[in-house]
Amino acid sequence: MIKPLITVENVSRDFGPQPALKDLNFQVDQGEIFGIIGPDGAGKTTLFRIMATLLLADRGEVMMDGMDVVRDFRTLRKHLGYMPGRFSLYQDLTVEENLNFFATVFNTTIKENYSLIKDIYVQIEPFKKRRAGALSGE
């Protein structure tokens, strides 16, 4: 039996009178490729912030690799990384310089963990010398 890697059950989050997420349910199994798409305001960023232990859901439960994102947030933060699309990179540094900087924040290097990031790194490698401020945001 395949153990779920991510389980989201009845997750809701409101910002004032505006619901960002309402009774969201899904499961991602180990080895499964799963994407979350939707228009602006659909709740994608809110969901990822909840999953990354940066925001609390108003209702519901999120489990990541068998750990509760609220109860086990300290342990999860040692295994999770979250980089939002906006305001996350130093605009005056290149992509490569940003990657190196964030690696050093976590006491590692790109070279040391290349096997873990290779699939993504090869996709961004053509842009590694480009300043982050010059990257497309669309």
Rank of each mutant, 00 (worst) to 15 (best):
residue 20 A to P: 00
residue 41 G to E: 02
residue 94 T to G: 09
residue 74 R to V: 04
residue 132 A to P: 07
residue 48 F to V: 07
residue 73 F to Q: 14
residue 137 G to L: 14
residue 132 A to R: 10
residue 87 F to A: 15
residue 17 P to R: 10
residue 2 I to R: 11
residue 21 L to R: 01
residue 133 G to V: 07
residue 27 Q to I: 10
residue 41 G to S: 08
residue 68 D to Y: 09
residue 40 D to L: 10
residue 27 Q to D: 03
residue 119 D to M: 03
residue 88 S to Q: 12
residue 91 Q to G: 11
residue 24 L to R: 02
residue 46 T to R: 09
residue 9 E to M: 11
residue 131 R to I: 04
residue 73 F to I: 07
residue 86 R to Q: 15
residue 108 T to A: 14
residue 64 M to A: 10
residue 1 M to A: 00
residue 136 S to H: 02
residue 80 L to S: 06
residue 137 G to R: 14
residue 81 G to A: 13
residue 68 D to T: 10
residue 15 F to E: 02
residue 73 F to R: 15
residue 29 D to V: 10
residue 39 P to E: 13
residue 69 V to T: 12
residue 57 A to I: 01
residue 29 D to I: 12
residue 49 R to G: 00
residue 43 G to K: 03
residue 126 P to I: 12
residue 29 D to H: 13
residue 59 R to N: 00
residue 132 A to M: 08
residue 126 P to H: 10
residue 100 N to T: 11
residue 13 R to L: 01
residue 11 V to H: 00
residue 40 D to G: 13
residue 98 N to Q: 08
residue 37 I to M: 13
residue 45 T to G: 06
residue 25 N to S: 10
residue 43 G to L: 04
residue 65 D to I: 04
residue 48 F to P: 00
residue 93 L to H: 09
residue 138 E to T: 06
residue 15 F to N: 01
residue 64 M to W: 08
residue 112 E to I: 11
residue 75 T to E: 00
residue 74 R to G: 01
residue 2 I to M: 12
residue 106 F to M: 12
residue 40 D to A: 14
residue 95 V to N: 04
residue 29 D to A: 14
residue 31 G to C: 13
residue 138 E to F: 09
residue 78 K to T: 11
residue 20 A to G: 00
residue 128 K to C: 01
residue 119 D to I: 03
residue 121 Y to E: 03
residue 48 F to W: 07
residue 14 D to G: 05
residue 115 S to H: 15
residue 39 P to K: 13
residue 7 T to Y: 06
residue 12 S to E: 00
